[in-house]
Design a protein around this nucleic acid. Structure first.
Lengths: 351, 351
DNA sequence: ACAGTAGTGGAAACCGGTGTCATATGCAAA
DNA sequence: TTTGCATATGACACCGGTTTCCACTACTGT
């Protein structure tokens, strides 16, 4: 028993490791590991002692070493191709909300679905980093090839889309269709009968759903969407200008137009101004998203508020639920409802 | 020598490890490691053989194991508190441009400087992940406490700001002042003499610099900025409306106003409309940033284009240069110049 | 009193890389 | 021929965790 004068508990110099904690608590590192991983086979006394020391030293296990042993990382990825900066930032914030306090971090991976190497890039990204999971917002979420790739790589994922695409535990379905219906009801209540629609790109389901909702609402009032009053845009401001110009030059132009997003609605306002139409006296406009642009144009846009950040948070929580690390979060469906925000761009139909 | 029938080269089942490569190349794992790390002490033959096998198997080393041995990670962080989504997304894209092909990934960490735990949060983030480096755009880049914290944690960082803050190798200085001067020259050439300014929050250096540039330009023409024609905004649309309303109600109102960003310029347009002023006939407006909003308002904004994405790319490259992993990138100063984009919101001064 | 069993803790191997150090080889100089 | 040095390679420990396996308690039931 030489050198047992040194059984004083020393605080190590740098960041403590599991060995330091074990030494200070006078247990084996395995026992510390059991405490860290909440194993039931640790006596209350031992657990308390170890936890006290962990708290006092501020120890937290090294994610790399942990990950190496677990054969996975503590990183969550977001793979996206959505062109709207505000959508992206809100979604990132939401995911981080859900990750907070878990020790997981968020790694971003924007991509271009048209790129030849897109799937290979994603494969390298997920495989190399051994991601814990990924979140995919639209429209990348609708890519079945990508979903199959992640399946093959055994990487958990959550898809956010406006229609159910696969197993519900891996999906968050946004209520775009009901949003479109709310827009329709609002315009119909204001007396509009000739209601037009500017869609997003045909590759976006959200645009289809928003249109389907509009048609639901119209049908309920005995109305329908005339092919003459539909234009296909690209979710961009410029496409909104172009589609708006086209719609407003129709012989029987609509008295109200529902746009599949705010950017295009802003473009439509521009087109209306150029055509000498006053909004909302001559033309009512409804947007979708309730992003900043909705309050920065004139007149301000009546639009549907999308709870992007809430959806992001939910996505992170669902990811944890997938691997039994947490309970399936109670989905507060009400918080995901898209609410109509009435501003200046809608008014009674011209007589 | 029992079992030497098995010296056939087998392709391993899952992802290959360094051991698999070593076995297939009939060298030690250490030699493979040397090839990976470009050690000069490997013969050309051996190197070629190992590289051939690496290429054929698609092997790439595990960043976690590598990081564990190196005592650092292959993650770059971006710490930001900038409220503009488009700035954030452009910056992220730029950093990713610079990281592409390097094997590094980008981890995001938005934060709120007013939060009590902000510095602690950053410390945990950087320390736990053992980040290779971080990029800090304004205004978080101006926080000296944060810089000292990173110094203490021995974490490389690049600060992006409109004035030099510390050692140049850790800074990217944006040319906000010259941008402000260009705005001034433009307005002066159009005949404006009473030129106003809407600033950002006083905590943003960029706003000071943009104003200083404006004053440079005015001084060169023998003009100056009247205190009556200055209002302090908050870089937000609403503050632009408020400041605009204030400035336009002055007895001698300015005939042109330079806004420290586009959002506020959009707000000013709104205020002008409410005040019954036509832009640009009665009032010229110059913004700053050239973000999407600049082309989505009416009239479209004359503004200064900021090369956010290029700056982000440069930041990533500089990070590598800090640790001799790469040459100091040749800073193409010309690509960082902020160019005036003339659109509809500026015109000759009213006579 | 004597096994049988569940609860608890430790030693050693392992995850996939890198660092240190020793050794083997080739070639020029003594 | 021997020495000396630089280059090329490998053995082994190590980074900081987890898992496997085993030993040692302290209870039970008979």
């Amino acid at each position: 028993m030489a050198g047992d004068k040194d059984d004083e508990i020393e605080i190590p110099a740098g960041r403590p490791t599991i060995n330091d904690i074990a030494r200070m608590a006078e247990v084996s590192k395995k026992t510390v590991s059991r405490v860290l991983n909440k194993s039931p086979f640790v006596s209350a006394d031992t657990r308390a002692k170890v936890e006290e020391i962990i708290g006092r030293t501020g120890y937290s296990p090294d994610p790399q070493a942990r990950g190496l042993a677990f054969r996975r990382s503590f990183l969550v990825g977001i793979i996206f191709d959505n062109p709207n900066p505000q959508y992206v930032v809100n979604m990132q914030q939401g995911i981080l909300d859900g990750l907070r306090g878990s020790g997981y971090e968020l790694v971003i991976h924007p991509c271009d679905r048209r790129s030849r190497s897109y799937l290979t890039d994603v494969r390298h990204f997920v495989e190399r980093q051994k991601l814990y999971g990924v979140v995919m917002p639209p429209s990348i979420s609708e890519d079945e090839q990508l979903a199959r790739l992640l399946e093959e790589l055994k990487c958990s994922y959550i898809r956010i889309a406006s229609v159910p695409l696969d197993r519900p535990e891996r999906m968050i379905v946004s209520h775009d269709r009901r949003g479109g219906e709310a827009a329709a009801r609002h315009l119909i209540e204001l007396g509009h009968r000739r209601i037009g629609f500017i869609s997003g790109p045909s590759t976006f389901r959200s645009s289809h759903e928003r249109r389907a909702g509009l048609e639901d609402g119209l049908a309920a009032a005995g109305l329908s969407l005339s092919p003459d009053h539909i234009a296909e845009g690209a979710y961009t401001f410029d496409s909104g200008v172009a589609c708006g110009t086209a719609l407003l030059s129709r012989a029987e132009r609509p008295t109200a137009v529902f746009c599949a997003n705010d950017e295009m609605a802003a473009g439509l306002l521009q087109a209306a101004r150029r055509a000498g139409l006053r909004v909302p006296q001559d033309l009512s406009v409804v947007g979708f998203d309730d992003f900043q642009v909705a309050t920065q144009v004139w007149p301000t846009l009546t639009t549907l508020h999308t709870p992007t950040r809430d959806i992001g948070r939910l996505a992170a929580l669902k990811l944890f639920a997938l691997s039994d690390e947490a309970e399936e979060p109670e989905i507060d469906e009400e918080s995901l409802v898209m609410r109509l925000v009435v501003r200046e761009s809608t008014g009674p139909a011209p007589t």
